[in-house]
């Protein structure tokens, strides 16, 4: 439980790298929810998710980081873009993507209050306690735990994915049999 002073915090090179990652990531997250261009909003989501992957790398969680890159940036973003194209959203600037000021202001207030309360709670609990030097998690370690201790949740997740697959097909396909009934 070793605390660090603010001056020492700024001397550590990793923290500068962290700030170089964190500020563009948060800016991109903000633009995701505020941009008036729907395609740009989704592309900003790519930047913010890439930022989270970079933070996972800083924390030694390489496998999770590359999973984020493959699953989120590779697959989920494509789903979003396909969804945008199929729903024929206007691709240019569109002011009708968000609610008016009457909803925006309470929403902003609520999220700022949520952030303030949780930030205060975490600061109160941890302060400037450092993360001790750690070994990066190897994929082999992660796999050993996943297929030993967590094998039943793993199977449950695969079942959920199967159900989602079947559900997605049933929802999205045009029902040709219904007319005969």
């Amino acid at each position: 439980m070793e605390a660090v002073s603010l001056a020492d915090w700024f001397k550590e090179v990793a923290n500068w790298a962290f700030m170089v990652i964190a500020f563009p990531t948060l800016f991109a997250a903000w633009r995701t929810v505020s941009s008036n261009n729907i395609v740009r909003a989704v592309l900003y989501l790519v930047i913010s998710l890439a930022g989270t992957a970079a933070m996972f790398l800083m924390l030694g969680a390489a496998f999770v980081a590359w999973t984020v890159v493959l699953v989120y940036i590779g697959a989920v973003i494509i789903l979003f873009l396909i969804g945008i194209m199929i729903t024929r959203a206007p691709l240019g600037v569109d002011s009708d993507l968000s609610h008016g000021r009457d909803v925006m202001l309470p929403a902003a207030l609520l999220s700022i209050v949520l952030f303030a309360v949780t930030a205060w709670a975490v600061w109160d609990a941890f302060g400037m306690i450092m993360i001790q030097p750690f070994e990066p998690t190897s994929t082999a370690d992660l796999a050993n735990v996943l297929f030993d201790r967590f094998v039943i949740p793993f199977e449950v997740v695969s079942f959920v994915l199967l159900a989602a697959l079947i559900g997605g097909i049933t929802l999205a396909r045009r029902d040709n049999t219904g007319a005969k009934r």
């Binding site: 964190a22 729907i38 968000s98 925006m104 600061w123 941890f126 302060g127 306690i129």
Partner: peptide, 30 residues
């Protein structure tokens, strides 16, 4: 590196996402 710096970024993500869910009208953006 401290715990707080990463957790604060995570909480900022959560709050920004909450703001987006509440203020967006387009279902894909929600």
């Amino acid at each position: 590196m401290t715990v707080v710096q990463f957790v604060l970024v995570g909480m900022a993500f959560f709050s920004i996402g909450l703001y987006g869910v509440l203020s967006r009208k387009n279902a894909v953006l929600i």
